[in-house]
Design a binder for these strands. Sequence first.
DNA 1: CCGTTGTGTAAACAATTGCTGACTTGAGGT
DNA 2: ACCTCAAGTCAGCAATTGTTTACACAACGG
Lengths: 219, 219
Amino acid sequence: MNTPPPPTITPAADAAFSPARPRDADTTRQALLAAARRRFALDGYAATTVRVIAADAGVNVALINRYFSSKEGLFEACLAHVGRELDRQDAEPSSLTQIIETIIHQVADSPSGEQSLQLLMLLRSSGDERADLIRRNTLQRFAERMAATSGWPAGRSGDDRVLRAQLAISAAMGMVLLRSSTGLEPLTSATVDDLAGPLGEVLGVLLGVPPGTAVPPRA
Amino acid sequence: MNTPPPPTITPAADAAFSPARPRDADTTRQALLAAARRRFALDGYAATTVRVIAADAGVNVALINRYFSSKEGLFEACLAHVGRELDRQDAEPSSLTQIIETIIHQVADSPSGEQSLQLLMLLRSSGDERADLIRRNTLQRFAERMAATSGWPAGRSGDDRVLRAQLAISAAMGMVLLRSSTGLEPLTSATVDDLAGPLGEVLGVLLGVPPGTAVPPRA
DNA sequence: CCGTTGTGTAAACAATTGCTGACTTGAGGT
DNA sequence: ACCTCAAGTCAGCAATTGTTTACACAACGG
């Protein structure tokens, strides 16, 4: 095959040498998870090879199969991690404007930052049924929590609120994806302050911020 | 390798038998382009194999290399096609609400419809420099045309208008992607009428539809 | 009628993929 | 000190990838 070198944005953690890595299974598991998460999120599942992940983590390839059974297993573990992280993030009930604030920070973060990677992972598919289920469930919980907090007055059906929440999520993820996968300017280089305004308006419109209530123009 | 069968949403055009396909080079070229476009858009570049594309088109694998030099070449051709199609689509200057109408129809179309596939292609990357350039240029033209038509009064810098146009595009593409790659409900099964409302509001906010001017609630 | 040219097919190639087995190596308990 | 077993390495397999090469078939001009 001659697939071009993966679109690696980040040349990977330079784990070229760790003079004497302590033999800790849990540490290497975390290293593999972190490396895999980044690669899967940025390059996609199919374009990511287990050898690259192992190299990023500074670990032997065989350990992926030892600790996660397969490439699929590693992918699922990444997805599960993102799910937990996303749940934890907005565990306590917060106000609508707080949620919007959170999302803005999540997506306006560097396109290759940890926050963005989490959202990107939810767009990546391995074609595996079980992995797709995890992904769908995570998105579903995310959307429903958002819909529950949305500020729509009575008269709007629950389904419509969930739909609008899902649209809000898709808008946020679309932005992150476009920023990370294409070098589109000025979008890619935009700062949080640049994005907070329009993004706040979009989320406000979708989640039903009362017309008067201005979304905080900047962080 | 043991990559699971590609996430093929569509089992592909059942080109199993064409009793006597006329030997027309141009026809097969188009067939390959159409099949490749669908696969690339829905499954991504890396997850799509040339053999599957050829099978979809009902032709031999070697013809891909004959007519497009390589898998990369075929991908570029798909991208170029999308670029032309997108340019053609909004060639004549139209009003802001017309543009919004067009986008709504483009994205609210079936997630695996031709219109949606075009947008999805712009999110797919092969890692090749030249292909990525085509993609970026297409997006750039698209965004700038949209920004030029946006209804913002003076006082807003040009850069901000382009940024907002790019955000509009990313929101639209995010929605299409989420609809096609996850089975998220009710988003995936939503009809044009369901989506036209919220989508119109989002695009209106980003592109500067004057507050009074209600976006047509439905097609 | 035959040959030439363009179109399509088949079989094989080298490279890469995910994965496995047998092996070293190291750390901790007694 | 030694022994044990988990942690890590290495070399290689079987399958799949993109691509190429040599060949078969159909149309068309002479």
